[in-house]
Design a protein around this nucleic acid. Structure first.
Length: 289
DNA sequence: CCACGGCCTGATTC
DNA sequence: AGAATCAGGCCGT
């Protein structure tokens, strides 16, 4: 299937800016599982080419539109957040990077796994969880698994998650799966709350602090003012905006709202990605810090 | 309110 | 090679 897309879209930087954790790049194609469907996707001059394991193309078309937030008017967003030369440079270097609208439960799990971990390990954790509990899918000889439901995970227990290599995060993930399976938390409902109220609800879960809550809110629950502050963003803020060190987490988020406005989260994603890439590669050579 | 140690374990660094 | 250090936080004290 071929899909027309807005001019302002870059598949690679969108999928490789650390928001989503189950995409694999191979020979020009990105492979991933969304909405219980294994798909492969690539970008060409004319649009997106997509192949699906289920083959319901009309449905897939609207899901892709939703997942990549094609309705976001990036040029308008850029205009609002382009407040200075630093953010402006980051925007220009990663033009077309979109925030994703991921499935909330999978997104929550991924960021529970992210605590003091590394990207590689998060990806492995997510694959192990899927392979252990999910449903098998096949496309062009590639086999992947769906991400399991809260019920599938809660039925199994913390020990199993530890065996899968989650470490101390196993308890947090297991608790979250129970909370959602038994209905004491409805992630989808959080879309109806405002940013701060939704954040409070998420942080009632053990193991979910302000940073992970912000990631779930921005990457899956439509709160584009969420402003996750991790090491990388913190580094960018101290380098460009706070000579004497950034204030505490919440005050910094409020500062971001005042400074960048309602799309502060988009600003965060560009700062994050730019900082991470800049730190990883200087003159094409990988180095630390 | 802030500072600190501990938590699991695998990847990366030295 | 083998040992240390670090990695997209959070919790309890």
């Amino acid at each position: 299937m071929k899909l027309y897309i807005p001019d302002c879209f870059d598949l690679a930087s969108t999928l490789e800016s650390g928001q989503a954790h189950r995409w694999k790049y191979e020979n020009g194609w990105y492979w991933g599982v969304i909405y219980g469907d294994l798909i492969k996707i690539r970008q060409s001059k004319s649009g997106l080419e997509i192949f699906s394991s289920l083959g319901d193309l009309e449905k897939l078309k609207s899901l892709i539109h939703c997942y990549f937030r094609m309705d976001d008017d990036l040029d308008e967003i850029y205009e609002i957040i382009r407040k200075d030369d630093y953010i402006s440079g980051a925007i220009d270097r990663h033009y077309g990077l979109r925030i994703l609208r991921q499935e909330p439960w999978e997104c929550l799990c991924a960021f529970i796994c992210s605590a003091t971990s590394s990207i590689v390990r998060i990806h492995k954790n997510m694959e192990s969880i899927s392979d252990a509990f999910g449903k098998s899918l096949v496309l062009d000889g590639h086999r992947r698994s769906t991400f399991p439901t809260p019920e599938q995970i809660s039925a199994s227990g913390e020990d199993k998650l530890r065996e899968l290599g989650l470490g101390f995060r196993a308890k947090y993930l297991h608790c979250a799966s129970i909370a959602i399976a038994e209905g004491s938390l409805d992630l989808g409902e959080l879309r109806n709350l405002d940013y701060w109220d939704a954040k409070i609800e998420l942080m009632k879960l053990s193991g979910i602090g302000p940073k992970i809550a912000d990631c779930v809110l921005i990457f899956s629950l439509d709160k584009l003012e969420a402003f996750p502050i991790d090491r990388w963003v913190s580094r960018a803020l101290e380098k460009f905006y706070f000579d004497d060190g950034a204030p505490n987490y919440q005050d910094t988020v409020e500062w971001a709202h005042d400074y960048f406005g309602c799309y502060a989260g988009y600003a965060q994603q560009y700062l994050f990605h730019d900082q991470r890439l800049g730190g990883l590669h200087v003159n094409g050579v990988r180095h630390r810090k």
